[in-house]
């Protein structure tokens, strides 16, 4: 019965349009590549990424070790595969926290516009936005100790206002639309309208923003791990691999090269995917492109 004005035609054309969007395809391929590597690492890696072989340290890439070995003789390729798992898991959960707390807050604030809670939510958002994010993340991990879980919390907190603000803003404009007014006339409560009518129409927006936040979270996780506040050894992490590589930069540059490329390609893939999704969901832009 709910009749969101979703563009049914667009759904049908989505696949065709997607296939004609090279950036979207590139983003999808890169993202799938890293997600695939992360999943595969549960079943198989060329070597045990935690096994040390001091005698074989700092080897340049060979057919035995595709990306060479690190300062403990560990296989860099295997470490990157497992590192992908950490990066992706941290990013997914952190963004998940942002969505699951931010969206309800935003929807509530929009439904009760001008109420005290709306004011509190928005000022709370301002407060979090005003904090230097990396510094606060470092403080949080100083309080709770370093580790993947605390990195997730630190990154997640900064995702809450992003989604709260986004969904409040978008929901506010939806509240003035006819189909919502019709639902109100039909006697539906604010909460029910928010869930049944507003939320479905925010989905596209949330998916696009989610992808972008996801890529930002991968970068943030790398930065935290780089300063030593991410997942703890022996679990490999891209950011910590870079930190470890730093003193070897003149001796063995490949130690810094591959983890850096992994981060760049993952973030690039997610950004391209996000941009592609936005283009595909925005008919105006799609027209402009063709």
């Amino acid at each position: 019965m709910s009749a969101p004005p979703a563009d049914r035609n667009a759904e049908g054309n989505f696949l065709g349009a997607a296939l004609r969007h090279p950036a979207f395809i590139a983003g999808l391929v890169l993202t799938l590549l890293f997600v695939g590597a992360a999943l595969l690492s549960y079943l198989w890696t060329p070597y045990d990424p935690t096994r040390l072989d001091i005698a074989a340290k700092l080897q340049t890439p060979t057919s035995g070790h595709w990306f060479g070995t690190d300062h403990f003789g560990r296989d860099i390729f295997s470490m990157l595969m497992v590192g992908a798992r950490v990066s992706i898991a941290v990013a997914i959960i952190a963004v998940g926290i942002g969505v699951s707390l931010g969206v309800p807050l935003g929807l509530y604030a929009a439904a009760h516009r001008g109420s005290l809670l709306d004011e509190v939510v928005m000022r709370g958002n301002d407060l979090i936005f005003a904090f230097p994010s990396l510094l606060l993340a470092i403080l949080i991990t100083a309080v709770f100790g370093p580790g993947a879980v605390n990195a997730i919390i630190a990154i997640g907190i900064f995702n809450i206002p992003v989604f709260a603000r986004l969904s409040r803003g978008a929901a506010l404009s939806l509240w003035t639309r006819e189909f919502v007014l019709a639902a109100r006339v039909a006697g539906k409560g604010r909460a029910r309208i928010s869930v049944e009518h507003i939320l479905p129409n925010l989905m596209n927006l949330l998916i696009v923003q989610g992808t972008i936040q996801f890529s930002l979270a991968v970068l943030a996780e790398a930065a935290l791990a780089y300063v030593g506040l991410g997942a703890q050894p022996p679990l490999p992490s891209w950011g910590r691999m870079l930190a470890d590589a730093q003193t070897f930069i003149s001796l063995a540059p490949h130690l810094a090269l591959f983890p850096g490329l992994a981060i760049v390609l993952t973030v690039l893939g997610l950004n391209l995917l996000g941009d592609g999704l936005r283009d595909l969901h925005d008919p105006r832009l799609r027209r402009a492109r063709t």
């Binding site: 890529s215 930065a223 870079l242 930069i249 810094a256 850096g260 391209l272």
Partner: peptide
């Protein structure tokens, strides 16, 4: 797109390798 995806500390390390070392 590439510039947005590069972690600035990694870029900094590459700059050090090339221009300083």
């Amino acid at each position: 797109q590439l510039g947005v995806a590069v972690p600035n500390f990694w870029f900094a390390m590459l700059l050090v390798l090339l221009f300083a070392i």
